[in-house]
């Protein structure tokens, strides 16, 4: 009973900490929808897969969100027709490659600037590589949850039309395609249509406010639901598996890295604060394993897997998880070996 109560407290603690960041992410991504012409943003994205995923990884700099906040943004990018490589690069790198997190890491590891530098380099490298790998799948739809994939369809048709005719004017008249389709007109598309026809992204009328609110509430509801599930699982694991078990496991270069990666996935701590958390282990663990925690944690953790399930099919998340884990392991091990 006491265990259950502990788990419940941890569960609430995770939620109270994560919901503000989730809300911030949702507000940012919804604002992005209304104030930024994503088609233009996306059309400026490089088509080259490698460059695309690298640019996607750096886009995080524009959105200071942690892993609870980047999922709605990544999802939006995908449904707006961003290349898979850009979206995956963003999804994996944004929690680390953003000003707040870099600043926090620097504050925590002032004495060891190499940790800050390698955290950035490794995260960028892994995100770019995985984005590049996934770019071989040109059409993101088979990777995504069915309901979400349906929303991409219209866009792709629109964009292929646009590409074939190659006239910028058509960029603005994508609306008729949407009206023709039998399904109810998606609200983002209405919003986008409004922005595009007026072609003044900064205007803000009452109708748009309503749409903005609709989007925010939908996203909060849906991602919030996932967050509740993810936090419940993370809290139970925390209570059931003693942390000592994980710590005793790792003293040498290899197992310490593995232990820290497991810890990162289990603790599910927000990337804005994880640097302070991991400092607690800096005396007992190798620098390589601290890096593993800092690089792997923001990409994959139990809480974030819940959120990612709102974008991708489970199989894809397993791939992401496996590749990210292996790359983190190899990179941080080579760091321990060479430095």
């Amino acid at each position: 009973m006491s265990q259950l109560y502990n788990a419940f407290t941890l569960f609430l603690s995770l939620l109270v900490e994560a919901i503000p960041f989730l809300l911030l992410g949702v507000l940012l991504s919804s604002a992005l929808l209304f104030f930024v012409d994503e088609r233009q943003l996306i059309s400026k994205m490089p088509r080259n897969p490698l460059l695309g995923s690298f640019v996607g990884s750096c886009v995080g700099f524009l959105f200071p969100v942690c892993e609870c906040g980047n999922v709605p943004v990544a999802r939006r990018l995908l449904t707006q027709g961003a290349p898979t490589s850009v979206a995956i690069g963003f999804l994996l790198a944004a929690p680390t490659i953003n000003p707040i997190v870099i600043w926090a890491t620097w504050v925590a590891f002032r004495d060891q600037p190499e940790i800050v530098v390698f955290r950035i380099i490794f995260s960028l490298f892994i995100a770019t590589t995985i984005g590049w790998i996934f770019s071989f799948q040109k059409d993101p739809r088979p990777l995504m949850q069915t309901e979400l994939a349906k929303r991409v369809i219209n866009r792709l048709t629109a964009s292929s039309n646009r590409d074939s005719e190659n006239t910028p004017a058509l960029l603005r008249s994508g609306t008729f395609l949407l009206a023709k389709s039998g399904t109810p007109v998606l609200m983002e598309e209405q919003a986008l249509a409004a922005t595009l026809t007026k072609n003044k992204p900064k205007t803000f009328d009452r109708n748009k406010l309503r749409l903005f609110l609709d989007t925010v509430i939908q996203e909060v509801r849906e991602l919030g639901g996932m967050l509740v599930l993810g936090s419940a699982i993370a809290a139970s694991i925390q209570v059931l598996a003693p942390r000592e078990l994980i710590l005793n496991w790792g003293q040498d270069p290899i197992t310490s890295i593995l232990a820290m990666m497991v810890l990162a996935a289990v603790v599910s701590i927000c990337s804005t604060v994880d640097a302070f958390f991991v400092l607690a282990f800096s005396s007992a663990f190798t620098t390589g394993s601290l890096l593993a925690f800092l690089v792997f944690g923001p990409m994959i953790d139990i809480k974030a897997i819940g959120l990612m399930l709102s974008i991708f099919k489970p199989r894809i998340i397993i791939y992401l998880f496996a590749i990210a884990a292996q790359l983190t392991f190899v990179l941080t091990l080579s760091y321990s070996y060479f430095f």
Partner: peptide, 22 residues
């Protein structure tokens, strides 16, 4: 007009219920 369903894995109402219960 019926709200656009863009629920990905939750049936309508379930996500809200989870949030509300928590």
């Amino acid at each position: 007009e019926p709200e656009v369903r863009h629920i990905t894995i939750f049936p309508p109402g379930v996500a809200t219920a989870l949030l509300a219960i928590a």
